[in-house]
Design a protein around this nucleic acid. Structure first.
Length: 647
RNA sequence: GCCGAUUUAGCUCAGGGGUAGAGCAACCGCCUUGUAAGCGGUAGGUCGUGUGUUCGAAUCACACAAUCGGCACCA
């Protein structure tokens, strides 16, 4: 039987018997054979030296192919593992997968590694690359493989093999004397990986991601095709560090945090201006979308959270307050500080009798919520113990779920666009193990979200088992200026909470019915969103969001009176302005306010005072525009208008 | 919560068993300045908290706290 292999350009190559990818490449050209790293067989990546035995569409993977990076990174992980075992005998290997932009490898070793070991390990890795040992694929029987790894003291590898499906082919890859359990594929030899890699971070990680298991030591690294790509990536990491919202928050005097209130934010005047500007924007947008705003208590008797299920489900992460309820020491009643707004909103819904004519009822609240997050979870504004969400609950009928979800998706898309983001990804998280409500109800809720997403025309993938305990959720991800994705928006269908808290409305038929609750947020936690926003803009906010929009700088004292006049005019027009009449050179003032990322610097000296003009310098630019004062006020206040208020 | 690292002036950071250093910022003067740092001076710290070792601790040990990088968690 001749073997027919179809190349990407459509040419068909015939062979009398099986060939390896390398032989195939050689039959096409000498250069290709030299550049070949692997082959793609009907879309499946395979080793270059593995015989091809059936007709297929084939593609030779070279260093230029997108797949090359995957191979390089995974091979580098193997090389890291070998280097570590050569340098630190007795260290056990576990797993070492690729991650975005790199890879990691988890090791079991009693002694902790130190980043001081990195140069030594990297040097050993380069040595292994230089040895250029061929990577040889070997197939094993299950028992032999277990025996082999156990004989080497590799308990984790043996455990992995035991858990593989019985019919799974067990393969190892050898590079010289060193061997690792691996599915492959790999590059033909260690020399092909190159040395454009760098070890980056050291971290603890649980075996198999389970906190009941042993803590392993994880080494993260990055690997690229060449040094130029590596350098570009390292530059990007530097850039991300420069944008760190904790750093910028300090530099721009937006907020601070301190030990006595771990996980909570002290908003300084500028940060709070930013916060309120954003909050007011959301407030206008949702008001336009037919929401009503409410405000509910901070403290509730535990009975409410017990009824809602939060006390049992998240009690450990709630702040609880014991209050004396009698004279005896055991006379104590428990209150809970709200970790979310939903039970409170149901209480408002339950006041009086709600008719089907009142639905959908869209109830919004910027409520302060407290969650006792684990110490290790906290991270600047991104993960805090006290936060406010742009939270709302839509009480509606089952029939209204789809149209409400659609309308929500539209508002979300438009708001993200106005804030400078695109929706990068949408995921549907379905039922988790720990949940309330029957499977029938979950079927219904998940089905409703699937059809809403289809109706909205959004592509989405599944995030299995990651729903909330009361219902499935849609997660909206946005992409920031340096390509990172953040999950902010969410829409959750909940058939359970109205049942648990006994909410009902009177239907057209005069009977009582349960409403459906849609929990939804667009920005999510405002704290977290502001963190993302600061990093996205690197502190250079669009004019309408800037805490200080304009600074008026005098050149000499003579201009002070006029500068005050300019300041008053801008302030009266609603522009957030500051006046800088310090006895400093104009260079120093320009530098200070530029570093403070003030978008507009208005310079006034003798000339401007006489002509009633301003010399405008925009952040990032060097040119100056000379504008008449009236004209400047008009132009700038129009520019400073929030996007939803522009004509 | 788990693993590792870190914590010195408002900020960024150096130092290190014999009692504390720089730059920037602040304050006070001088300078009256034309688009990214003008000059001089002054002041500022129980070296995260506690306990211990020591003749002596900011330095060494232990505990705790917070922070950082991950992991686990994220209603």
């Amino acid at each position: 039987m001749p073997l027919r292999l179809t190349l990407p350009d459509g040419t068909v190559k015939e062979f009398s018997a099986s060939v390896t990818g390398l032989e195939l490449a050689a039959s096409i050209g000498k250069g290709l054979a030299a550049a070949a790293l692997a082959v793609k067989l009907d879309g499946e990546l395979r080793d270059l030296l593995r015989p091809i035995e059936k007709d297929a569409k084939v593609e030779i993977v070279t260093r230029k192919s997108p797949e090359a990076l995957e191979l390089i990174r995974h091979d580098t992980a193997h090389i890291l593992a070998e280097a570590v075992q050569e340098l630190f005998p007795g260290t056990q290997v576990t797993i070492g997968p690729n991650v975005e932009n790199g890879f990691y490898y988890d090791f079991a070793r009693a002694e902790p590694f130190s980043t001081d070991d990195f140069p030594k390990i990297e040097a050993k890795m380069r040595e292994i690359v230089a040895r250029d040992a061929p990577l040889v694929r070997e197939e094993w029987s299950r028992d032999e493989a277990i025996k082999f790894f156990e004989s080497k003291g590799e308990k984790y590898k043996a455990e992995l093999i035991r858990d593989l499906a019985a019919d799974q082919t067990i393969t190892t890859y050898a590079q010289g004397a060193w061997k690792d359990l691996c599915r492959g594929p790999h590059l033909p030899s260690t020399g092909k990986t190159g040395t454009s890699f760098k070890l980056l971070k050291l971290a603890g990680a649980y075996w198999r991601g389970d906190s009941n298991n042993a803590m392993l030591q994880r080494i993260y690294g990055t690997a690229w095709r060449d040094d130029k790509e590596l350098q570009a990536h390292l530059t990007m990491l530097d850039e991300a560090e420069k944008r760190d919202h904790r750093k910028i928050g300090k530099e721009l005097d937006l907020f601070h945090m301190q030990d006595e209130a771990a996980g909570s934010v002290f908003w300084h005047p500028k940060g709070w201006t930013l916060y309120r500007t954003l909050e007011n924007y959301v407030r206008r947008r949702i008001e336009k979308a037919g929401y009503v705003e409410v405000h509910t208590p901070q403290l509730f008797d535990s009975s409410l959270f017990k009824a809602s299920g939060h006390w049992d489900m998240y009690g450990d992460n709630m702040f609880k307050v014991a209050v004396k309820s009698g004279d005896a020491p055991e006379d104590v009643k428990w209150l809970g500080i709200k970790p979310m707004n939903c039970p409170g909103h149901v209480q408002i819904f339950k006041q009086g009798i709600t008719s089907y004519r009142d639905l959908p009822l869209r109830m919004a609240e910027f409520g302060n919520c407290h969650r006792n997050e684990a110490h290790g979870a906290m991270h600047g504004l991104i993960r805090v113990r006290q936060m406010v969400q742009d939270d709302a609950h839509i009480f509606c009928t089952e029939d209204q779920i789809q149209s409400e979800s659609l309308a929500f998706c539209e508002v979300l898309r438009s708001m993200y666009a106005e804030l400078g983001f695109d929706v990068a990804r949408v995921r549907l998280a379905d039922r988790p193990e720990k949940r309330t409500g029957s499977d029938e109800v979950w079927d219904k809720a998940e089905g409703a979200l699937h059809s809403a997403l289809k109706a909205a025309g959004l592509d989405y993938d599944m995030n299995s088992g990651d729903g909330a305990f009361y219902g499935p959720k849609i997660e909206f991800y946005l992409k920031d200026a340096i390509g990172r994705e953040w999950q902010c928006g969410t829409l959750q269908v909940d058939f359970n909470m109205p049942e648990r808290l006994d909410a009902s409305y009177v239907g057209e038929d005069g009977q009582k019915h349960r409403p459906v609750m849609l929990h939804r947020a667009i920005l999510g936690s405002l704290h977290r969103f502001l963190g993302v926003l600061i990093e996205h803009y690197a502190g250079k906010f669009p004019l309408w969001l800037s805490p200080v929009q304009a600074t008026i700088c005098t050149i000499t004292n003579d201009a002070e009176g006029y500068a005050q006049e300019v300041f008053d005019a801008l302030t009266a027009a609603g522009i957030r302005a500051k006046l800088d009449i310090r006895s400093e050179k104009i260079n120093a003032k320009i530098r200070d306010h530029s570093l403070q990322k003030v978008p507009l610097i208005l310079v006034v000296g003798k000339k401007e005072a006489e002509a009633k003009t301003v010399a405008l310098r925009r952040l990032g630019g060097e040119a100056q525009e000379i504008l008449g004062l009236e004209d400047a006020v008009k132009t700038l206040s129009a520019e400073a208008m929030p996007p939803d208020l522009r004509g």
